[in-house]
Simulated assay, not measured.
Amino acid sequence: MAAGTWDPTALPIEPGLYINFQEAAATAIRGGARGTVAIPLLKYGANATAKQFYTVSKEKEAQDLFGADNIASIRLALMGGARDILVYTMPTDPQPEDYADMRDAFDSRQFNVFVFDQEADATEQDLTKAWVERNRTEGKHFMFVAGGTADEDADPALGNARSTRLKHDYIVNLIVGGTLSGKTYTSAEYAPYLAGLIAGTAINRSITYAQVALEDVNKRLTTTQVREALEAGSLVLIHDGEKVKVVTGLVTSGKKIRVIRARQAIATDITMTAADAYIGKIDNNPDGQAALISAIKAYLERLEANNVLMDPAVMLDPENESVGDSVFLLISFAHVDSIERIFLTINV
């Protein structure tokens, strides 16, 4: 089924569902699966073949397929909370064209968060950003978690510059790594844990102040550096004296991960449900339109009951006439965010 965005001056001719995101609107119907992290694996044992997909949900499965020494990223993603890992095996000594093939291969698979196996250079990060944007335009919604090298982690300004370069609603940029069981991870090496944390967190929950599996960070930021990082849209880990935790769940555009994941879920759910139950199956008359509006509103009301959004409204778009084979709906709701800042005024 075709999907993507629509332009009122040049409507697509293919049957399908087309969604425009505005700051106040999005759409959906039935809840889909969450919790899948996509990883292009660089090294693997003889039990796996290059340029193939494998799905694993347990560390033991991954060990048997790829070898215990090759699954650090998979292990971290599962520790973070991923339900399962969609693995694509990269060729030995991958070249730029192999990364292009990998992205093309993932286009036909469903997942929620993409992350690299190890450090990726700026060129591959930029190409991945373009890939994320192309998929969003075509109607496929997922997040990309990026990270940096040890040198970049040592200077938060470099991490923040990466956030600026990768600015996008669907991209998270981790600028701090840390130590666990005697091993120090760069932010790029630890990014799979954050990918698992994001994928495994319910869309009505935030990762702000979530404790992560690290004993310490590899760079303790000052209060000023933390503030500058948040202003740049960076995702920061801090050691609060007892544990390591996420400061605030942000994407590089400065918006909240919770809000963006809700939008992604809504767009994905309605696209998949429309293909099964609505496209080509109901009449474009008042009864058919009412049935579609009722289904979408019922779905949004379920999200409202689960504190994902508030005050949903669904109606025919008065600016675009729903005739022939086209239906234009106007949908609005308010996002529910988590309380993250508490301001007290105490009179004594």
Rank of each mutant, 00 (worst) to 15 (best):
P94W: 13
S163P: 08
T179L: 08
L180C: 14
V259L: 12
A120C: 01
T5R: 06
A48C: 05
D269A: 15
K183A: 10
L230R: 08
Y193G: 09
I175V: 15
A290C: 06
V327W: 12
L42N: 08
K243Q: 12
I282E: 05
V176C: 08
A130K: 10
T55K: 08
E133T: 04
D325R: 11
V247S: 00
S326P: 00
A24M: 13
A277T: 12
T123D: 13
I171L: 10
V314C: 04
T271R: 15
F111P: 07
T36N: 00
I257E: 00
S181M: 02
G196I: 10
Y185D: 09
T273M: 13
D317Q: 09
V251I: 02
M315S: 10
A161Q: 12
N160Y: 03
V251G: 07
L78M: 05
L292A: 06
Q225G: 01
A313Q: 14
L194I: 15
K256F: 09
P96T: 11
A146M: 02
Q110M: 05
L194D: 06
E340D: 15
L197F: 08
A62D: 04
G147K: 14
D283W: 10
V308Q: 03
R34Q: 12
Q110H: 07
V244H: 14
A195C: 00
